[in-house]
Design a protein around this nucleic acid. Structure first.
Length: 464
RNA sequence: GUGGUUGUAGCUCAGUCGGUUAGAGCACCAGAUUGUGAUUCUGGGGGUCGUGGGUUCGAGCCCCAUCUUCCACCCCA
């Protein structure tokens, strides 16, 4: 092998300065909103014990966890028989750590480890990358950021209502107006399964009906039958796809259908309570009208979500009229900490997918110019004398809060001007012998190509 | 994990049936212009054709493997 061309792993990306600036704008909006609702920041390690992560995301999820090979002689404890027992067995022998798959499970782990120091309800937000050994696709990366907000230690459905409020606030602040917050409840799904005579089969039913908008009613029917749901049950299920009316009317219809199932009862009661809270909060999610949906908050009985730890309300957010999957999702999990030996702590949370939001804002041209930062003025120098003269000027500009730089060498003017041009610096200040003599510096406006002779103070007041 | 797709200059892409020295635009560098960028003109540098094998007198082009890209599925932010 001769010179090796450098590369980065599949599904990962470098972020150039322009991209980071825009991403930070999104992070900023999300952070400010979370903090406004009383959530505090938390960070956890990039890697967790493998045992903390396995079994929390289902079999599919376990396969997508990036495992970290034990350091040193990772084969020291293995025997030839271990290989024959298959990769799952072998994995436990050679890997004890893994990259985090999401932020919710590490959060639950943190809560359990710090249960005595935390006062409940505990509200935290967390913005960090997560890793999935998935095959990359549009909007799907192997390393991506999640922005989670969770609250544990209360069953109150005010939390669910506030999640709706936060989603609405973040997305509208980012300039999005046509999006749908879908909400459903695991209890409703369980109640449906029971009401159609397939109690306990909601898992299979969910996976199938979740695809309704993609593969259509016939496709779902086929998949349900393949999964062993009876013909009669499928027929009873199908009227649910096309429930008519607004959210409250749908709730009433569901009441009639599932009212006598315990789980259905529980789900509907929760959902009604969420609506009640949102009404009292005068929520925009109830009042705002979308272009493409009748309501921004939409009760959708076909929303299922894969993660197996959800037990109550579940959410998913879709921006309408863009080619992008969901940009946010979450739900209530009653027993996540129970897996780590702390039962009886209910939690609810959700997550924004920044990478997807970025792509959506880019597609819709919604990044404001104010989200661009950069140098405002470049001081051009001709020689040592002008550099010496320029240094205090530079400091004065910075003291005045003006982002500025002095070109660090007496390069050709063409080169220095070109530098300003390329970095999109709007003003250039020229300090030559004439300027030093008069104290009037040349301020050149790079967009208009005009320049005027001004004192440092005049320049500062112009640029401020 | 399954099926397909992509890779040629820093970037976007041409490249005929397998045939001599692989091209263009943009970008970059230098000069025209010793105190003025973006515009104009002139010149210049830059390629192991993703990588490794194979077929052939001869491969950017055909075959195999591998990596990467994008897409569909599974699943998901």
């Amino acid at each position: 092998m001769s010179k090796e061309k450098p590369s980065i792993p599949k599904g990962t990306r470098d972020f150039g300065p322009a991209t980071v600036v825009k991403r930070n704008y999104i992070f900023g909006v999300i952070k400010r909103t979370f903090e406004k609702f009383g959530y505090l920041p938390l960070e956890t390690p990039a890697m967790e014990q493998l045992s903390v992560l396995t079994g929390k995301y289902g079999d599919e999820g376990d396969q997508l966890i990036f495992k970290i090979l034990n350091s040193g002689d990772f084969l020291a404890k293995t025997k030839p028989e271990d290989i024959e027992e298959g990769y799952k067995h072998l994995t436990r022998k050679i890997s004890e750590k893994a990259l985090r798959y999401d932020l919710t499970v590490p959060f639950a782990r943190y809560v359990v480890m710090n249960r005595n120091e935390i006062s409940f309800p505990f509200k935290r937000y967390q913005i960090q990358p997560v890793w999935r050994a998935d095959r990359p696709q549009k909007g799907r990366y192997r390393e991506f950021y999640q922005c989670d907000a969770d609250v544990v230690g209360t069953n109150s459905l005010l939390c669910e209502a506030e999640i709706v409020q936060m989603i609405n606030e973040v997305l509208t602040t980012l300039g999005l107006s046509d999006f749908t917050i879908k909400i459903n409840h695991r209890g409703v799904l369980a109640g449906i399964a029971e009401a159609i005579g397939e109690k306990g089969r909601e898992g299979d039913i969910c996976v199938a009906i979740d695809k309704l908008d993609k593969i259509g009613q016939e496709g779902v029917r086929k998949e349900l039958l393949e999964r062993g749901i009876s013909e009669g049950a499928v027929q009873k299920l199908e009227p649910l796809y096309t429930l008519e009316g607004n959210n409250e009317q749908i709730l009433d219809q569901l009441q009639a259908l599932l009212g006598d199932t315990d789980e259905g009862q529980r789900g509907l009661k929760d959902l009604r309570e969420v609506w009640q809270y949102l009404k009292s909060l005068d929520s925009q999610a109830l009042s705002a009208q979308n272009l493409s949906e009748q309501s921004r908050l939409l009760l959708d009985v076909t929303l299922a979500r894969g993660l197996s730890y959800y037990t109550g309300c579940i959410f998913e957010v879709k921006v309408n009229n863009v080619s992008m999957g969901s940009i946010s999702g979450g739900g209530r999990y009653d027993n996540l900490t129970g897996m780590f030996g702390l039962p009886g702590v209910s939690g609810v949370g959700f997550s924004f997918g920044v990478d997807r939001i970025y792509d959506v804002l880019e597609e819709l041209g919604l990044f404001p110019s104010s989200s661009q930062v950069g140098t405002k003025a470049l001081i051009v120098q001709f020689d040592k004398a002008s550099e010496r003269y320029g240094l205090p000027v530079l400091q004065k500009l910075r003291d005045a809060g003006i982002a500025s730089e002095l070109y660090p060498e007496a390069a050709k003017l063409k080169k220095q001007m070109g530098y300003a041009d390329q970095k999109n610096i709007p003003y250039v200040i020229l300090i030559g012998s004439e300027e030093m003599a008069t104290g009037k510096l040349k301020l050149r406006n790079m967009e208009q190509g005009e320049q005027q002779d001004l004192t440092v103070e005049e320049i500062i007041s112009t640029l401020k």
